[in-house]
Amino acid sequence: MKNPFVYLLIAFMALTSCSSDDDKGSTGSREIKYEITGNYSGAKIDVTYTENGGATTAEATKLPWTKTFTAAADTHGAGFSAGAGDAKPGEKITLSIYQGGKLKKSQEATATSDGMLIANVTTTF
């Protein structure tokens, strides 16, 4: 079985390399919520997320999973990734990012025939 952490590392590197130059001066709520929903039935999903420029890891042991934080004034983007290696083929998860209670972006992933379930989503604000 392939190691899901390799995929999470690649996804996290993509998250942290995003440029936010086009979003300087944007306004709006600084309340950010990450959410994972779906029908995944395995033991845990490994989650890596950015919070005010720093990377944090967590485990989601049941769905739905959420993380809410207030973004710093100099933070102009958010993103997270999730992965599991014990999913049943066809199981799905959806990663969503909300800003001020409004959906900014979401991404769905479906488990492969070998049980790999990997997703990532990023947005700017």
Rank of each mutant, 00 (worst) to 15 (best):
Thr122Ile: 07
Asp86Asn: 14
Pro89Arg: 08
Ala72Phe: 00
Gly53Tyr: 06
Lys33Ser: 13
Glu31Asn: 14
Met116Arg: 11
Met1Arg: 10
Ser29Lys: 02
Asp23Val: 14
Ala55Ile: 07
Asp114Arg: 04
Ser41Tyr: 01
Thr50Ser: 13
Ser19Met: 04
Ile45Trp: 02
Lys67Met: 10
Ala82Pro: 04
Gly38Asn: 03
Ala58Gln: 03
Ile97Ser: 00
His76Pro: 00
Glu108Cys: 07
Ser26Val: 12
Phe5Thr: 11
Ala55Gln: 10
Gln107Arg: 03
Thr56Gln: 11
Glu59Arg: 05
Tyr40Ile: 06
Thr112Ala: 15
Val6Met: 09
Ser81Gln: 05
Gly28Met: 09
Asp114Lys: 09
Leu117Arg: 03
Gly101Pro: 04
Gly90Glu: 07
Asp21Ala: 15
Gln107Trp: 00
Leu8Cys: 11
Ala109Leu: 05
Thr50Asp: 08
Thr50Phe: 05
Thr48Glu: 08
Pro89Gly: 12
Gly54Asn: 14
Tyr40His: 07
Ser17Cys: 08
Tyr40Lys: 05
Asp23Gln: 11
Thr123Ala: 15
Lys24Thr: 10
Cys18Thr: 10
Lys88Gln: 12
Gly85Trp: 01
Lys67Cys: 11
Glu91Gln: 13
Gly54Phe: 09
Ile118Met: 06
Leu103Asn: 06
Cys18Gly: 12
Ile97Asn: 00
Ala84Lys: 03
Leu95Ala: 15
Asp21Pro: 00
Val6Arg: 10
Ser81Arg: 02
Gly90Thr: 05
Thr123Ser: 14
Glu35Leu: 14
Gly53Lys: 05
Phe69Ile: 05
Ala43Met: 08
Asp74Pro: 01
Thr48Gly: 15
Ile118Pro: 01
Asn39Gly: 14
Thr50Gly: 15
Thr122Asp: 07
Gly38Val: 04
Thr16Tyr: 02
Gly115Pro: 08
Thr37Ile: 13
Phe80Arg: 01
Thr61Gly: 08
Asn120Ile: 00
Gly83Ala: 15
Ala71Lys: 03
Leu15Thr: 05
Asp46Phe: 14
Ala72Thr: 01
Ile36His: 01
Leu117Asn: 06
Tyr98His: 02
Phe12Glu: 08
Lys88Cys: 04
Phe80Trp: 04
Ser29Tyr: 02
Ile36Gln: 02
Ile97His: 00
Ile93Tyr: 03
Glu91Leu: 09
Ala43Gln: 13
Ile32Pro: 01
Thr94Gly: 08
Ala111Ile: 08
